[in-house]
């Protein structure tokens, strides 16, 4: 982890998301995938977003950039401030200029997100020509530079190879090169290492840390793996049931988790070193089905400290000091007392 730890409030956020709501229309109703999600991202920081499948972490990021097909998706409200614009209220052309240009996106599965019938070089040159208006030769030179930057040996020759000639880890490096092509201010990485083996995952994590330091961009890293988060993030958002349930600097989150879900999540994963638990702690039950707009805490059915109020009101995110907040009545009460 770089030592350039962030001073809270040191600069204006690069990206400021307020009250984002995304609803999917499905047969016989709606799915409230993202409910009132707010967060900001500061220059040069790495924000980790953790949550299980269906917690709304990917949908949140895709909503920001208008990557969800509509219908069925409907971004109902909120604002996304980026470079003086509200990304939710600009024209598709303006949004296209942001996407892949000022904001890069790395998808989870490097096997399916590259086009198999174009060379890797062509795919890296595409954003360079579209967003930066480079001619063919300049774009090719830059593409080669990018491949070298992400650590692919023999970059000049490999530009003419097709995706199937690359291994999984190499393809993910290519995806990162594409996302970095236009010097983005913000890079959103959606589970970039989930499809990779641990030794390759370690390579990609090292690469991302290095690039972040070198290029000074802000990164949003989405994952379900708390181990990955512990190693790279500066701040962490924990999502559950389409909401942010806890938000804290990384050290604070692991040392002093306040939301019962975060606490349960931290005890449920076995560790590679230290004491071995005789039995794993279990979070009983299933994640919620988000059929209605939330009127109660989404975690109440699985929570072991739930109180009556949890069933009638959806807790807002209470500020617990030190840049730490949690959406929980019980945590708030414990802090106040």
């Amino acid at each position: 982890m770089p030592d350039g730890a962030l001073q809270p409030g040191s600069a204006d956020p690069v990206l400021d998301v307020r009250g984002l709501k995304t609803v999917f229309k499905v047969r016989g109703g709606e799915v409230h995938a993202v409910n009132n999600v707010s967060f900001d991202l500061r220059a040069g920081e790495l924000l980790g977003v953790v949550g299980e499948s269906g917690s709304g972490k990917s949908v949140t990021m895709m909503s920001l950039l208008g990557l969800l097909p509509s219908p069925p998706a409907d971004v109902r409200g909120g604002s996304v401030r980026f470079e003086g614009q509200d990304l939710l209220h600009i024209t598709p052309e303006q949004l296209r200029a942001v996407r892949g240009g000022r904001i890069g996106f790395v998808f989870q599965d490097p096997m399916t997100s590259l086009n198999p019938v174009f060379t890797v070089g062509y795919q890296i040159m595409e954003p360079l020509r579209a967003h930066m208006g480079l001619n063919k030769n300049a774009a090719r030179a830059r593409a080669q530079e990018l491949l070298e930057l992400v650590g692919i040996p023999g970059a000049a020759q490999r530009l003419d190879d097709y995706p199937h000639q690359f291994s999984g880890g190499m393809r993910q490096r290519v995806m990162i090169a594409i996302a970095l092509a236009c010097d983005p201010k913000v890079l959103i990485a959606d589970e970039p290492t989930t499809a990779l083996d641990v030794t390759i995952q370690a390579q990609i994590i090292e690469l991302m840390k290095e690039l972040r330091d070198k290029l000074g961009m802000a990164v949003i890293w989405i994952t379900h793996d708390l181990g990955v988060i512990a190693g790279i993030a500066d701040r962490v958002l924990v999502m559950y049931g389409g909401q942010v349930v806890e938000h804290a600097p990384v050290q604070e989150l692991f040392r002093n988790p306040q939301h019962p879900y975060t606490r349960a999540l931290l005890t449920t994963i076995p560790k590679i070193s230290g004491e071995r638990a005789r039995r794993l702690t279990v979070i009983q039950g299933q994640p919620p089905i988000l059929g209605d707009a939330p009127t109660a805490c989404p975690f109440r059915d699985r929570c072991d400290v739930a109180i009556a109020r949890c069933a009638t009101e959806n807790p807002p995110r209470y500020d617990l000091g030190g840049g730490h907040d949690a959406a929980c009545f019980v945590a708030k009460g414990a802090v106040d007392a």
Binding site: M1, V198, T199, Q201, A202, Q203, I205, E206, D225, L226, G227, V228, I229, A230, G231, V250, Q251, F254, L266, I269, K271, I272, S273
Partner: peptide, 17 residues
């Protein structure tokens, strides 16, 4: 290479990449 869910350990530990 296994990520450790503890930032204190994750930052001090020597990784063999």
């Amino acid at each position: 290479a296994v990520p450790e869910p503890d930032p204190a350990i994750a930052q001090t530990r020597e990784r063999i990449v």
